[in-house]
Computed example of a mutant assay.
Amino acid sequence: NKGFIKGFEADLETLAAHPHPEDGFAGMEIRGDVLTDKENAGAALLDACKEVKGSEPVQIGSYRGFTMSVEFSAWKQEYTLLLKGQMTHRASLGTDPRGNLTRIDNALAQMPQRLEAVKNQLDNLYQQQAAAKEEIGKPFPFEDDLRVKSARLVELDTLLNIDGKGHAQPETVVAKSARPSVLDSLKRPVPPRSPEKKPKQHEEVR
Rank of each mutant, 00 (worst) to 15 (best):
T67I: 05
L93I: 03
G85A: 10
Q77V: 03
A48M: 06
D47C: 03
D33H: 06
F66M: 10
V70T: 05
G94P: 01
L46I: 08
T36W: 14
Y63N: 02
E71D: 12
L82I: 10
L83F: 15
V34M: 15
V70C: 10
T36N: 14
D96P: 10
K50M: 00
N40R: 10
G32F: 13
H89V: 10
M87Y: 08
K38C: 03
K50S: 04
K76R: 15
G32R: 12
G32C: 05
E29Q: 11
G94V: 03
S55G: 01
R90C: 07
E71G: 01
A48K: 07
T67Q: 09
R90N: 04
Q77R: 13
L35Q: 08
M87L: 13
H89L: 11
L83N: 05
G65A: 11
G32Q: 08
K53R: 14
E78N: 06
T95E: 14
L46D: 01
H89R: 10
Q86M: 09
I60P: 01
W75D: 02
K50I: 01
A91I: 08
I30P: 00
Y63R: 05
A44S: 07
E71R: 15
G61M: 07
E39I: 04
T67P: 01
Y79T: 00
G54T: 13
S73K: 14
N40H: 13
D47L: 14
S69M: 03
T80G: 08
A48T: 04
D96E: 12
S92W: 14
T67V: 12
L46C: 11
L45V: 00
L82M: 12
A44N: 06
V34G: 10
Q86C: 04
E78Y: 04
E29L: 14
S92K: 14
R90S: 13
G54V: 06
M28S: 00
E51A: 15
R90I: 02
T95Q: 15
N40S: 14
Q86Y: 03
V58I: 11
K38V: 04
A41D: 12
M87A: 03
L45S: 02
A41T: 06
E51G: 02
L81Q: 04
L35Y: 00
M68Q: 02
D37Q: 09
A91C: 03
S92N: 11
M68R: 02
V70W: 08
C49F: 07
E51S: 12
R90K: 05
V52Q: 09
M28L: 15
T67W: 12
M28Q: 02
G54R: 15
G32K: 03
V58F: 08
L93F: 10
T67S: 12
S55A: 13
E39R: 08
Q59K: 11
Q77W: 05
T95I: 02
S92Y: 01
K76C: 00
V52R: 09
S69I: 02
V58K: 13
D96M: 11
M68N: 04
T80W: 10
T80Q: 10
G65I: 02
S92V: 07
A48L: 06
G94E: 03
K50Y: 07
E39T: 03
P57R: 07
S55N: 08
S73Y: 09
L45C: 03
I30W: 05
H89F: 06
E39S: 06
A41Q: 13
A91E: 08
A48E: 05
P57Y: 11
